[in-house]
Design a protein around this nucleic acid. Structure first.
Length: 483
RNA sequence: AGCGAGGUAGGGUAGACUGGAGUGCCCGCCGGGCUCAUAACCCGGAGAUCGGUGGUUCAAAUCCACCUCUCGCUACCA
């Protein structure tokens, strides 16, 4: 049985989930459900990244322990994904013992391989925010956060010999042209790696809320090194072999591509693992032409949207709105439009009218497949296997439109006897197949269709028109229009 | 500044690698059809000098050069 392992980034606990996070977990969820539908042995991981200075400081502000703080926040994220109907197989938290154990072992392997050495890190430091600022982030030579002066500061640190892996990485990119997806993202990384790699400062003497560095207990391990190992620690490693590694696809936002396509693979090679098979870089949502940010107040809260519309509506919108890897506009108006036109009118109404027609029918539902050829299953499968949910939905919608047209053309309400049976047979088989195809995207709607048809959930191989031996019972409309 | 990706009807996209009538899709707009259905569904139509200029070619959205505009990335903020 083929294996499939998909991951999202683990989310840093310095804010609530926003629409971009929802996008990442939804695409991972759709892929996981798709592979389960095909019968693959699937593992889907998400979680939260809980160490670091920002978390420590926020907890102090709130007057609670960092652990208490992350316990609360992590629960919020879990709840948000539950509302979105996310089917993750595990939820990893970097403050869990299993993770700490894995990180320490991972660092030991890197160390044993001669890739960790002691040194000094020198950078621009903002005293007010108590943090180093990368040179490129400086705003007119001042701190971009608080606007105050920064000064050069030296700090003891341990380095990871990242520079040693430049050739390995370039070779890996060459051998695996689908490592960075979509491909247009690959060039900018490869060119930068070509220009040379600097070693990575991987411990912090000043941060206390982190995993202790076992070779010098005054240091904690840099949060990124800590965080990246989650993809292995959730597999039960090092107590057992990581069954699903290497991951088939790791979903990342474009802001963290470097960590997942350069640092992470280098760490893995150093510790004796294979890099992931591919890293899928997603675009960002912008809001009416502007970046979403808390200061503008245009941040969309996925939980609120789920409450107002439905998990399915939001999931559909997210998968349909952004062409793979591109940025897209988010606005509630667009969400409402898609909900009303494509879900309520095209799909919901199709199911509703078919159920109305067939509920009145009393004979045997049989006929010859006439509509099947309008569904291009091969193209659908190809799109899904390239992670192109946008295209896949377009193909499903072509079929939905064909089904609506079939009903208009055959006019079942004017037919009788075997002609009527045949028209209904094709209509019902169409929505049965549609339920299977939309199930990775809109699991609740798929369940509702199956329930109305009185059948269990189908598998991908059931997408063929066959005999009908069940009695449909009409239920409530799948989607409601909003406003 | 360097590197990268783009500019195709009112908006959003596909097509570009392997040149061949501006060909497709979604939304919006206009007109018609239908009445099973959530004023839903189906059909038809208007609307584009394919960012600009020049070149290669029998033929360019597609290949080449230059120009212009937009956007992204530039590593230790997790």
């Amino acid at each position: 049985m083929p294996k499939f392992y998909v991951t999202t980034p683990i989310f840093y606990l310095n804010a609530k989930p926003h629409i971009g996070h929802a996008y990442s977990v939804t695409i991972a969820d759709v892929l996981a459900r798709w592979h389960r539908l095909k019968g693959d042995d699937t593992f889907f991981l998400t979680g939260t990244d809980e160490h670091g200075e920002k978390v420590e400081k926020k907890a102090a502000e709130l007057g609670i322990s960092p652990q208490e703080h992350v316990d609360r926040l992590s629960a919020e994220w879990k709840e948000a994904w539950k509302k979105l109907n996310i089917s993750n197989d595990d939820f990893i938290r970097t403050t869990e013992l299993r993770h700490e154990k894995a990180v320490k072992h991972f660092v030991k392997l890197m160390h044993d391989n001669g890739d960790i050495y002691e040194g000094v890190y020198e950078g621009w430091y903002c005293t007010s925010d108590e943090t180093f600022i990368p040179e490129s982030q400086l705003a007119d030579g001042k701190c971009p956060e608080c606007g105050k002066e920064v000064r050069k500061l030296k700090e003891e640190t341990y380095y990871f010999r990242l520079s040693r892996y430049q050739e390995h990485l370039l070779e890996y990119y060459k051998q695996n042209p689908n490592f960075i997806l979509p491909k247009k993202r690959a060039a900018e990384i490869i060119n930068r790696v070509n220009d040379g790699l600097k070693d990575l400062s991987m411990t912090r003497p000043s941060v206390r809320w982190g995993i202790p560095f076992q070779f010098n207990d005054k240091h904690t391990i840099y949060v990124w090194v800590d965080a990246l190992v989650n993809y292995l620690s959730a597999q039960g490693w090092p107590d057992k072999e990581p069954k699903y590694w290497p991951a088939d696809v790791q979903i990342v936002g474009k802001d963290i591509v470097w960590f997942h396509t350069v640092i992470w693979p280098a760490m893995l090679i150093s510790a004796g693992f294979k890099p992931p098979k591919s890293v899928l870089v997603t675009g960002h949502f912008i809001s009416e032409g502007k970046k979403m940010s808390k200061s503008i107040g245009n941040v969309a809260d996925p939980t609120e949207l789920v409450n107002k519309y439905s998990a399915d509506s939001l999931r559909y919108f997210l998968m349909r709105e952004l062409p793979l890897g591109d940025d897209g506009d988010f606005s509630e108006k667009l969400l409402a439009e898609r909900n009303n036109n494509e879900l309520a009118a095209d799909l919901g109404n199709l199911v509703f009218r078919v159920l109305t027609l067939s509920s009145k029918f009393e004979g045997k539902l049989e006929g010859k497949p006439a509509l099947e050829s309008s569904m291009d299953l091969k193209a659908f499968q190809e799109a899904m296997d390239r992670y192109d949910t946008y295209k896949a939905l377009e193909i499903i919608w072509r079929f939905i439109k064909a089904a609506n047209k079939y009903i208009n053309d055959t006019k079942p309400w004017e037919l009788q006897g075997s002609e009527l049976a045949n028209a209904l047979y094709n209509s019902i088989e169409a929505i049965r197949v549609i339920a299977i195809l939309i199930s990775p995207f809109m699991p609740a709607a798929a369940d509702s269709i199956n329930k109305q048809l009185g059948i269990p959930s189908g598998r991908f191989e059931d997408c063929k028109f066959s005999r009908i031996d069940y009695i449909p019972k009409k239920g409530a409309p799948l989607f409601k229009k909003i406003e």
